[in-house]
Design a protein around this nucleic acid. Structure first.
Length: 272
DNA sequence: AATGAAACCTGACAGC
DNA sequence: TGCTGTCAGGTTTCAT
């Protein structure tokens, strides 16, 4: 499910709740698919650690861990939510959902649970502060570097935006929304997007990501804490999921096509 | 090197 | 009620 703004919101919500918590013990389920480190190593790395930070890198949630009183032996707990993953702060009395793959028992008595029905998510641990991931943060990069990422690429602009080795954190919704704001059709070859269009794309992408983060902030507690389906305050999508509906600018029916296996939405009149 | 299609999974929903 | 088909906001792998 989550793209950059959703992961950012979740990370902020988790940070508010669990920074300073110690992990006393860990339960790990039988399904190995979502675990990208060996179960034993995950258990050994998390147990006895204190959570010092929760932050986002691309679509990854990074939980920084340290040994409470002893030699400094930091580690990192990395979670990618895939399409359906969730990290829930629960009371022990809360029913354990189907597809719960890991439960961290916290010193306060609460539990941090990783649930992922579709198992496209990934959970791993890294020693030290060694987690790295490719690509540039779209909200940190400058325009010249942004434009440089796409130079010479013949792939559709939509696909380039989704390429996490170029930009990290952009998913299907915000790719479509930023292309609409820029007036660029998703199938346009990246190398053929003019500089002025690229500037609008850069501005539009940063704007829509920032607006979505601002909108998501209000309901993150529900998402993290509750039974899970509270969801986010929905930023109004201008094209995503609006096939056949009138363009909010010109009234033309929004089209839906498949590009690189992903559904893509655009206004055939506003986007060239 | 880069591109597209297929694969990895379960669940929700529409239509019959 | 239950079946079938389609779709899902992600990533990796494999064949061109």
């Amino acid at each position: 499910m989550p793209e950059l703004p959703e992961v950012e919101t979740i990370a902020r919500g988790l940070a508010r709740r669990i920074i300073g918590e110690a992990i006393e013990s860990v339960w790990i389920g039988q399904r190995s698919q979502p675990l990208k480190s060996p179960a034993k190593e995950i258990a050994r790395t998390l147990t006895g650690k204190r959570i010092t930070a929760v932050r986002r890198m691309g679509k990854h949630i990074v939980i920084d861990l340290e040994t409470p009183n002893g030699a400094p032996r930091p580690a990192q707990w990395i979670v990618h939510l895939g399409m359906t993953g969730r990290l829930l702060v629960c009371q022990p009395s809360d029913a354990v959902e189907k597809h719960t793959h890991l439960v961290a028992h916290l010193a306060s008595g609460r539990e941090l649970r990783f649930v992922d029905p579709r198992m496209f998510g990934k959970l791993s641990v890294v020693r030290g502060n060694g987690f790295t991931t490719a690509g540039s943060e779209p909200l940190d990069i400058g325009f010249e570097l942004f434009a440089g990422l796409f130079r010479g690429r013949r792939t559709p602009m939509k696909s380039a935006l989704l390429n996490q080795k170029l930009l990290r954190g952009v998913g299907n919704i915000y790719a479509d929304e930023s292309l609409f704001r820029a007036g660029v059709r998703p199938r346009r070859r990246a190398a053929r997007v003019r500089r002025d269009e690229m500037q609008r794309l850069f501005d539009g992408l940063q704007a829509v990501l920032n607006e979505a983060i601002a909108a998501g902030g209000s309901s993150v507690s529900d998402y993290v804490d509750a039974n899970g389906d509270a969801g986010f305050f929905q930023l109004e999508h201008r094209v995503y999921g609006r096939e056949g509906e009138p363009c909010l600018v010109c009234g033309t029916a929004i089209k839906r096509v498949v590009i690189g296996g992903r559904s893509s939405h655009y206004c055939p009149r506003c986007q060239k």
